Deep mutational scan, measured.
Amino acid sequence: MGFKLLSKLLVYLTASIMAIASPLAFSVDSSGEYPTVSEIPVGEVRLYQIADGVWSHIATQSFDGAVYPSNGLIVRDGDELLLIDTAWGAKNTAALLAEIEKQIGLPVTRAVSTHFHDDRVGGVDVLRAAGVATYASPSTRRLAEVEGNEIPTHSLEGLSSSGDAVRFGPVELFYPGAAHSTDNLIVYVPSASVLYGGCAIYELSRTSAGNVADADLAEWPTSIERIQQHYPEAQFVIPGHGLPGGLDLLKHTTNVVKAHTNRSVVE
């Protein structure tokens, strides 16, 4: 069995187990497998329904001669939608809004960016022009300005110390501490036991640490421990890039980060 097929099978099995364990909360999309990078042309966006009122959005972007996937989250909030992270750029984010209108038909009224990198804030200006209120932590807003990236308009308070959590509509926002970046936030959907790890969490097929220019490698494993301790009931975990899975993604990420750190020390 090929690795790609095995990865998709694991996603399907995880979703099936969740649907059985929580039949009222989960209505997993039966329309197909989780979209992969090879299936999404740059400039297009796919939506994948995880649970009743919960979707991931998947886009792709060219970077350094390669094409990478990027995940975000959409959560229903009454007759409105909360968006977590842009679709990595203005063109993708405009396509995301169009796809949401086509498939869901509810307005996106608020959006949260989970850290300051372009795959999370690139497209904020498109959201703002569409009347979406954009939010991020003060740290993310400051770092985005320093980096020359787009800056969300509103500040999220109460997320300055490791372990801080605040309720934001249908989700809980959690600051686990520094990891992929010093400002990275985690998003949890309690009604569906869905954990969105953003770039602080890796997919299972990833074996290298990737972009760690703004990471705190020493603190990252401790931050992941905080996530595990705060959300032990999480059933569906979405990484910032690639295929979702279960809580095993947290341990896998820790292993990859520690291996990278150990290699760096040896070198």
Rank of each mutant, 00 (worst) to 15 (best):
A144Q: 01
V132N: 02
S223R: 01
S223N: 01
T86W: 00
H115V: 00
T114A: 04
S208M: 12
K251P: 14
K91L: 14
L217G: 03
V266A: 14
D183G: 03
N255C: 06
I84V: 11
P138F: 08
S162D: 10
V257F: 04
R141T: 05
M18C: 13
P176Q: 01
G148Y: 03
A21W: 10
L6S: 15
L156R: 02
C199K: 01
H117W: 00
Y188W: 14
A66G: 12
G240C: 00
A215G: 09
L81F: 02
V11H: 15
I40R: 06
P239D: 00
Y12Q: 09
L73C: 02
Y12F: 10
D214Y: 06
T14P: 15
P152K: 00
M18T: 12
V266H: 15
M18Y: 15
L81G: 02
T134Q: 00
A259W: 09
P35R: 07
E225H: 10
A213H: 11
R141S: 04
H117I: 00
T114F: 04
V266P: 14
A94F: 13
V124M: 11
L82N: 04
T140H: 04
A215V: 06
V112L: 10
E44S: 13
A111F: 06
K251Q: 15
P41R: 12
I50W: 07
V108C: 02
A94M: 15
S31D: 10
G43A: 06
V28T: 12
S38H: 13
A90V: 08
D29V: 11
G163I: 04
A21H: 12
D64E: 08
T222V: 11
R46K: 10
V266N: 13
E157K: 11
L249A: 00
F116R: 04
M1Q: 03
D214F: 06
G242H: 05
T222E: 12
V266M: 14
S137W: 02
P69N: 15
Q228S: 15
S161W: 10
P35G: 07
A234K: 03
A209P: 11
V171F: 02
S205R: 08
G131K: 09
G43T: 05
A21P: 08
T114S: 06
E101F: 08
A192V: 12
S160T: 13
I151G: 03
D214V: 06
N92R: 05
S16Y: 15
G158A: 07
Q49E: 12
L82K: 00
G89R: 02
F236R: 10
V194A: 06
L143F: 09
A234Y: 04
V212N: 08
E80M: 08
P190S: 08
N184Y: 04
N92Q: 05
Y68K: 06
G198R: 03
L10A: 12
A59V: 15
H241E: 00
D125P: 04
G78I: 08
V257A: 04
S208W: 09
I151W: 05
L156M: 07
V194Y: 05
L159W: 02
D214Q: 08
D118T: 09
A111P: 04
D52Y: 09
G158H: 11
P239A: 03
T140I: 05
S181T: 15
G53Q: 11
L185A: 02
R263E: 15
A59T: 10
F63W: 08
R226Q: 08
V187W: 01
Y12N: 11
S22E: 14
L247Y: 15
L47S: 02
D183L: 02
P176S: 04
D85E: 04
I20Q: 12
S22F: 08
D248G: 12
V256L: 10
A59C: 07
D214W: 05
S22V: 13
V212Q: 10
D216W: 04
G78R: 10
P69Y: 15
A144F: 03
T222Y: 13
H117A: 00
Q229G: 11
G2Y: 15
D29E: 11
S56T: 15
D29W: 12
I58H: 08
G2K: 11
R167D: 12
Y231N: 08
T253C: 00
A21C: 15
N211Y: 07
V194K: 01
T182W: 10
N255W: 13
T207L: 12
W220K: 01
H260W: 07
E101V: 09
N255P: 05
R46L: 10
A259P: 08
L5R: 13
P138Q: 09
I40P: 09
R46D: 06
P23M: 11
D183F: 02
P176A: 05
G198E: 03
M1T: 07
P41N: 12
I151Y: 05
R142E: 14
G53R: 09
D118M: 06
S31W: 10
I20N: 13
E80A: 10
H252N: 08
G2D: 14
S181F: 00
E203C: 04
S161F: 13
E219I: 09
P221E: 10
L5F: 13
A129Q: 13
L127I: 03
Q61H: 07
P23A: 12
Q235T: 14
P239H: 00
H57Q: 06
F236G: 04
S191C: 05
V45T: 06
S7Y: 15
A90K: 09
T261W: 11
R46S: 09
D125E: 13
R120S: 05
E225P: 03
D29N: 10
G2P: 14
A136D: 03
A192I: 06
P190T: 08
Y12L: 09
G242L: 03
V54Q: 02
T14V: 08
T153Y: 13
P221T: 11
A133K: 15
L82H: 02
V11I: 14
A19V: 15
V212L: 06
S181N: 01
A218E: 13
E219R: 07
V146A: 14
L195H: 06
I20D: 14
A213I: 12
D64K: 09
G2Q: 15
A192D: 06
V121Q: 02
L81H: 02
L204V: 10
T140S: 07
T253K: 03
P23C: 13
R142Y: 12
Y48H: 12
A21M: 14
D216P: 02
L159I: 10
D77H: 07
V265F: 10
Y68W: 05
R141Y: 04
L243D: 14
T114M: 07
G78E: 10
K91P: 12
A130W: 09
